[in-house]
Design a protein around this nucleic acid. Sequence first.
DNA 1: CTGAAAGCGCTTACAG
DNA 2: CTGAAAGCGCTTACAG
Lengths: 335, 335
Amino acid sequence: MEKKASLKDIAQKVGVSTALVSFVLSGKQKEKRVGSEVAKKIIETARELNYRPNQIARSLRKGSTMTIGLIVADISNPFFGQLARIIEDEADKYGYNVIFGSSDEDSKKSDKLGETLMNRQVDGFIIVPAAGTEEQITRLILEKIPVVLLDRHFTSIPCNYVVLDNLRASLEATEHMIRKGKRKIGIVTYDMSLNHMKDRIAGYRTAMQKQGLQDNISVFTVRFDHLYEDMENIFKEQVKTKKVEALYIVTNTLTIAALYCIQNFNIKIPDDLSVMGFDGNEAFDFFYCPVSYVEQPVKEMGAEAVSVLTGLMNGSEKTTMVKMKPRLIIRNSCG
Amino acid sequence: MEKKASLKDIAQKVGVSTALVSFVLSGKQKEKRVGSEVAKKIIETARELNYRPNQIARSLRKGSTMTIGLIVADISNPFFGQLARIIEDEADKYGYNVIFGSSDEDSKKSDKLGETLMNRQVDGFIIVPAAGTEEQITRLILEKIPVVLLDRHFTSIPCNYVVLDNLRASLEATEHMIRKGKRKIGIVTYDMSLNHMKDRIAGYRTAMQKQGLQDNISVFTVRFDHLYEDMENIFKEQVKTKKVEALYIVTNTLTIAALYCIQNFNIKIPDDLSVMGFDGNEAFDFFYCPVSYVEQPVKEMGAEAVSVLTGLMNGSEKTTMVKMKPRLIIRNSCG
DNA sequence: CTGAAAGCGCTTACAG
DNA sequence: CTGAAAGCGCTTACAG
């Protein structure tokens, strides 16, 4: 009980300098040729006093905290929860811990969070960047803080990133729907300028054009903070009126929202409407018509992000940009 | 760019002591009556040098890191993800950040995690305790580290906790099924000795006994690491053989697993089997027969846990034990 | 009232 | 080879 034992306490008790204790306890006896009897006594005393190294002191001295700062959009979103879990496990392998925060897709929050984590001297960042955070990211890079962007990136910034090959994902998803005989295919995205959204749209556009369906291209956007409202309107104006016969929905939260609409508007899948979702979710499996979707290799993405980051934190200078291969999971929702 | 500015850099540039800079920058000019011109100059210079306080140094000096250690079973489980998110937001209100880790219901991992977080000098813990962590928790309490248990607790340890009123939850859930005319009601739990599982079983038992159904009491346990396998066996041996006409399933992961079995075994809900789930999940909503379930007040639980913990971290000596009120969400899965 | 000096708990360059 | 001493960046008790 009482106050925690420090190196000094051990040193005093054994009758040596704290330096020696530090050496022994960090396993450097060999190099320094500490007498083995002394070493033994030090180790014993440390155990006796229930010594625990103070990481904070060590961090201050070494200038490294062995901590990764993780900024996601929302940790309670299963997609980010999974990512966080992988990152946690991978980081642990390298001896790092994770401090996290959710930005809610808000650049102000992201900024504040980044600031806080900087002050806590994290050794590096894994960031799922919100729209409008180019400046924040640039600042970190200029300050030579190791950063890896995850899930999204900015073409304007030469920053390490690990993202899905969104172009390819959309190409394949759209082509699948076309192959199934759909023509009036719309895409549903969030109303944000982020690159992954743009790429998902671009892949869709390309696929439509390739098949001579450029006149059928319809991009529907939903506001992040008016998800259900805007989604309902798409269903009222586009689906119910048959202006569209297939919907490619490029996020798990968007897809879930669409499923609620399908249920509420009593729409028949795949007859009245074909649906292609994103990310995957148990709800997709249990929907009355199991939902086809684009699956991201979440594990690989998380692991790769940590791997790239640890490289940077250990001095690597190279910029790594990775686009991961998507996988189409086909069920019955596209006919 | 270059190295970060410290108090000393500012002090040198302005020509005062670091002490003065510290006072001004932490907003204590008034008390110390620092000349307002000097104060202004200090603040200006700080901005100019892009000064950021080093939290690590501050932490070492003050003996407080303003960090909460969070140990959950698995951050990628939406239930814990939601809890983590609430805790993050609430902690932020008090100026705290969160370092987290997943125990995977493994006491060894939990132990290691606790040790790591201790070394990082977290000011307090919020822990979803795994089975067999009594010793770990006791140690923390003996060392006077503020701890709040969440979701589960140990009756043998006088520790603060915030949990669901599990007895009541099971009582109400079971009574609902009985009211719906079910008699052969089984309960499905994880094979672990934790109190919340025991209470969920106890509430079920009580309800069954009250109605003279003590002979129908059937407790089925599933191993955490053989979830699908064991669940399948329950369906093969109990459901298919009609030994049971209703299942009360006391976890979200268990419920999801059961839903997969129902789908795979092609069982008709609620005719062949009634189902009561736990925690809630979008999948429950989209299941062909929407699933009734016991809902936990996740937000309130997370907020309360943080509130209790900050109380402790600010010196409160009292032990707070809170049991939150469950809510039954009734749909069609019980007839 | 003011500011120099000590010290939080470590690690490691450096003098002996 | 060995261990005393300096210093990481702060805060604050304390001497003037």
